[in-house]
Amino acid sequence: MSGRIPVTVLSGYLGAGKTTILNRVLAGAGDQRLAVLVNDFGPINIDAALVRQRGRDVMELSNGCVCCTIGDDLGETLSAIAARPAPPDRVLIEASGVAEPARIAMSAGHWPGFELDAVLVAADAETIRRRAADKFVGQLVRNQLDRADIVLLTKTDLCAPDAVRATEAWLHARKKGARVARIVQGRVPASLLFTGGIPAPGGAGPAPPRVQPGFTTRIWHPGRPVDLARLEAAFASLPESVHRAKGFVIDAATGSAALIQCVGRRVKVTPATEGAPGVVFIAFGDPAPLEAFCAGLDAALVPSAV
């Protein structure tokens, strides 16, 4: 584990539903210390019951979270957050609707003490195709979608099912391997927002139930050490339905634990000091591709010595 604070960037064009998602996240933060960085408190209507103290630049919430306005320098804001008496477990940056998430992700992900976890882009199911074709803002909207690890397709309950499916098909057609999840009323599972939200694999047993309508979890329990090269090669072919994965395996070459994390198409394997073998997957839509993928992962296991 790196010990750095993970950063999630929430982007999306104006009116895509980022504020609704943000309020849902804050209301369900639980016991984790979450720092939310926003461009301006003005348009953020945080539930008054959550607010404990509101200052000029920092809003402290009763659940232990803190909201800060992003000053002229994002790095300075991150440093100030990290220097607080109780540093956050993770940071969520709510980008302006006209911001380029790639620049924010680059700056935050490389700032000392922090690392990029994911870039999530909210897209209004009713308007995203029209926005992307607009001669004035289309390039910005397309840039936002292109940088997304996961596209959160919002307001799907307000559109006809055929229209939602057509928009999903368009998103997959314009970007190979795009991860798209339907979001209703801003409800995003913590396991999708943050890698740390994925539960520990725990003991062997049947796969857990769906964590939210449309989402499925599956645990792969490697019974033996793995060939990391073969495992990484397998992860390069993750089904588009798989949005997140996290867990531990035993490296056959060293006998030590390794942590594998995946968000969208990005896969990262790092040495770990501990961790019971097991990898949790979060998928959206038809669970069959995930089941088939997990069944094929046993090919990465190293045979036991005779």
Rank of each mutant, 00 (worst) to 15 (best):
R4A: 15
T8M: 04
Y13W: 11
L14D: 04
G15K: 00
I21A: 11
R24E: 14
V25R: 06
G28P: 02
Q32M: 10
F41W: 04
N45E: 11
A48C: 10
V58P: 05
L61A: 07
S62N: 07
C65I: 10
C67P: 01
T69C: 05
D72L: 06
D73C: 10
G75V: 12
S79K: 14
A82C: 07
A83V: 12
A86V: 15
A86Y: 11
P88S: 08
V91R: 03
P101W: 15
A102T: 15
I104H: 09
A108S: 05
G109I: 13
H110P: 00
W111M: 14
W111S: 15
E115M: 12
D117W: 01
V119K: 06
V119I: 15
V121E: 05
D124Y: 00
D134M: 09
G138Q: 07
Q144G: 04
R147C: 14
A148H: 05
I150S: 03
I150Q: 03
V151Q: 02
K155R: 08
D162S: 04
A166P: 01
R174N: 06
A181M: 02
R182M: 02
G186Q: 11
R187K: 10
P189Y: 12
P189Q: 11
L193E: 08
F194R: 05
G203V: 14
A204F: 12
R210C: 14
V211R: 07
G214M: 06
F215W: 08
T216P: 03
W220Q: 01
G223A: 15
D227V: 03
D227S: 09
L228C: 12
L231A: 09
E232R: 10
A233W: 11
E240V: 15
S241M: 02
V242A: 07
K246V: 10
D251Y: 10
A252N: 06
G255R: 13
G255P: 12
A257Y: 08
L259K: 13
I260P: 11
R265N: 14
V267P: 13
K268N: 15
V269M: 13
V269Y: 01
T270P: 03
P271C: 13
I282G: 01
D286L: 02
E291N: 14
F293T: 08
C294I: 13
C294L: 12
A295E: 10
D298P: 00
D298M: 00
A300P: 05
V302L: 07
